[in-house]
Design a protein around this nucleic acid. Structure first.
Length: 677
DNA sequence: ACGGTTGTGACC
DNA sequence: TGGTCACAA
């Protein structure tokens, strides 16, 4: 839940871009003959024609709905074109949609800071672009307002019934607007209209229902919220929204206005309470995060009903497939974005056949992530065993493969998180890996106890992956920024010279971030349509130039002592090939590491050595300052060195307050954990 | 027997 | 911190 932020100086222009029936559009682009025809995207054709996950407008006209079965859809609309989601390794593969989403982001990001909210949703902060336009090319200076922009819906601007002269009112609104905030908003709307045309041209399939955009002037927010059902508000669609309805008898967001901040805090906790109080007033301090890439990757599959997995070998088979997909995506991320993931997590859901305690949840488990398909597979399987042992309890452990299982797995997923950038330096990834590697390797008595790790990892079926299971490696923890180490080289010969990397390199490539996101979410069907349907929302803001929380995490102390520098002469491709073939002994044998022997086993050892080490963060920063954040004049920040600026700004961010709500009144009690066998 | 899959964030 | 839960699309 967002944190309340300080009130603002300027008005911000935020667009929420929502691609409706995105999967359908992607498929129609791929297969143009589908354009204009009633189309839906379906997955898993096997059972009752599969489930619909996206429905195009032409099909909606027939009454086809999401969450219908393919067969039902055929009944309602015999003409319907059902396109199956690509399947790879026996499961849905969303790569094409993810990639199409990336195309969209890359177009939008040309105009402002983007936050990828989901595969088909983006927040875009257009404040700067709108201000520039207002200063240089204000709407009234244009000889014409674009057709696209004239189709805008403007909340609070009541259109005539016959609609024909609505465009004139819209034009009027664009051209002569008293309020500066609305002028900015108008500029934002023009930019969005442009962007949507660009996307239509490049990406999509010309939907029958034209994409639309909706403008929300701040003067219309009150009226909008007064009638907006509480469950339609973003974040309130679930249990929180339900509990508000039940406990406060509110129906719309505006109904929340009658309650004091304290009352809402008592009910929902201090942070959520304040957030709600603000939301009711149309105020939301969420910043547009300025993040174009996902923070994690995952691959999962459910096995409902009879498909539930009851044998280790089957579980292993599926885990291998899931891990294989995950590994592929990690390599792509590494190649394209120069990032590595540090944590591997396994989630499963299960039920017990005979047991009364079948409500018990299968615990998720995680460990350091080692690159390489079979390593990931191995680790995931170990995590599964760890989870299973906990799930079934020690008494049943021995039954394992032999007798009939008393457990059945209904869902498996593996995910990779804690993704960090590799410094984008002169020459790439390899030295980074090598650097990490080398640092640890030489600062420790390498070979002696590392062989033991290998044994633990490779041959034991018990779980040895968690940090606690390995001896600490203090030197590494002090001297490196990464929590674990990956092999440093591909089959190519690599020359190593001197260099040093720290996370500051990462920080500098990102300008400080500012802006706020208004998280009003309006009813999709009435307010947006397919491609690029968007909302423009003007909102008040906080200080300029604040770092987001996520960026704050990247501010780390400089690596001081290690001044060894390195340089690689070959490109990055070799390391990718290396990862791709990491399990091939032949490749491993070709690796030469200066000073140490190069057997594959040792490589694995090195990779494993620092499992569990975490990079430092500046979480003690608040202690270091004796000023209150509001005593600092933001303008003096610019005088400071860049790193310091970042830190101070991070510190000036409103901190989330500890939730000290009395237990009796905590809304948490209201929520009963949903049993999920 | 749940649309399934993927992702983020809060809390303890 | 890792693990669990909630929420969204």
């Amino acid at each position: 839940m967002p944190v309340a932020r300080p009130e603002s100086s300027g008005s911000r222009v935020i667009a929420h871009v929502d691609m409706d029936c995105f999967y359908v559009q992607v498929e129609q682009r791929k297969q143009p003959s589908l354009r204009g025809r009633p189309t839906a995207v379906v997955q898993y054709n096997a059972w009752q024609g599969g489930g619909l996950i996206a429905v195009g407008y032409e099909a909606r006209a027939f009454g086809v709905k999401r969450s219908m079965r393919g067969d039902e859809a055929k009944k309602v609309c015999p003409e319907i074109e059902l396109v199956t989601v690509p399947v790879s390794r026996g499961k849905a593969d969303l790569t094409v949609y993810r990639d199409a989403g990336s195309e969209v982001v890359s177009i939008l990001s040309s105009k402002g800071r983007c936050e990828r909210a989901s595969i088909d949703e983006v927040y875009l902060d257009l404040t700067e672009a709108a201000e520039t336009m207002l200063a240089q090319n204000p709407p009234e200076s244009l000889e014409a307002i674009s057709e696209e922009a004239l189709k805008s819906h403007i909340l609070g601007l009541h259109s005539d019934k016959d609609g024909s002269d609505n465009r004139d009112r819209v034009r009027e609104w664009f051209l002569s607007n008293a309020d500066r905030r609305d002028k900015l908003l108008a500029c934002g709307a023009l930019i969005v209209a442009e962007l949507r045309m660009e996307m239509l041209a490049k990406l999509t399939s010309g939907m029958h229902k034209p994409a639309q955009q909706t403008i929300v002037p701040s003067s219309s927010v009150e009226e909008l919220l007064a009638s907006l059902p509480i469950k339609k508000m973003k974040q309130l669609g679930g249990k929180l929204g339900t509990s508000l309805q039940d406990k406060l008898a509110v129906n719309t967001v505006g109904d929340l206005l009658q309650f004091s901040e304290e009352k809402l805090q008592d009910l929902c906790g201090i942070n959520t309470g304040t957030w709600l109080w603000n939301i009711a007033r149309g105020v939301c301090g969420d910043q547009v995060e300025g993040r174009l890439l996902p923070k994690s990757h995952g691959s999962g599959k459910t096995f409902p009903g009879r498909q539930a997995l009851r044998k280790f070998s089957t579980v292993q088979k599926w885990l291998n497939d899931l891990c294989s997909e995950l590994s592929e995506r990690l390599l792509r991320d590494l190649e394209q974005n120069k990032r590595i993931a540090r944590t591997l997590t396994l989630h499963a859901s299960a039920y017990k056949l005979n047991d009364s305690e079948s409500l018990k949840k299968f615990p998720s488990k995680s460990c350091s992530l080692r690159y390489g398909v079979t390593k990931i597979q191995e680790d995931a399987l170990n995590l599964f065993h760890a989870g299973l042992r906990e799930y079934v309890g020690v008494y049943h452990e021995k039954l394992k493969e032999s007798t009939q299982q008393e457990w059945a797995i209904t869902g498996l997923s593996v995910s990779a998180s804690k993704i960090v950038d590799i410094p984008t330096g002169t020459n790439s990834i390899m030295k980074y890996f090598h650097h990490q590697n080398q640092t640890c390797a030489e600062l420790n008595d390498v070979s002696s106890h590392q062989d033991n790790f290998l044994l633990d990892l490779g041959t034991t079926s018990s779980i040895g992956l968690n940090q606690a299971d390995y001896p600490e490696n203090d030197v590494c923890e002090d001297e490196t920024m990464l929590g674990h180490v990956v092999p440093c080289s591909g089959p190519d010969d690599v020359k190593i010279e001197d260099d040093v990397y720290t996370y500051e390199d990462v920080d500098k490539k990102d300008p400080s971030l500012s802006g706020e996101k208004q998280s009003l979410v309006l009813q999709e069907d009435t307010l947006t349509s397919c491609l690029g349907g968007s909302h423009l929302i003007s909102t008040e803001t906080g200080l300029e130039s604040r770092l987001t929380k996520s960026k704050m995490d990247l501010v780390r102390p400089r690596l001081k002592s290690d001044k060894k520098k390195r340089k690689i002469e070959k490109g990055t491709s070799s390391i990718l090939r290396f990862f791709g073939n990491q399990d091939s002994r032949a490749n491993l044998e070709t690796f030469q590491e200066s000073g140490t022997s190069s057997s594959g086993k040792q490589l694995e050892n090195i990779q494993q050595t620092t499992n569990g080490i975490t990079p430092r963060t500046c979480n003690s920063r608040t202690d270091a300052w004796s000023y209150k954040s509001d005593e600092i004049d933001p303008s003096v920040l610019n005088e400071l060195p860049l790193e310091v600026q970042a830190e101070v700004r991070a510190w000036m961010q409103p901190q989330k307050r500890a939730n000290v709500v009395k237990k009796g009144s905590s809304i948490a009690h209201y929520f009963s954990p949903t049993p999920n066998p």
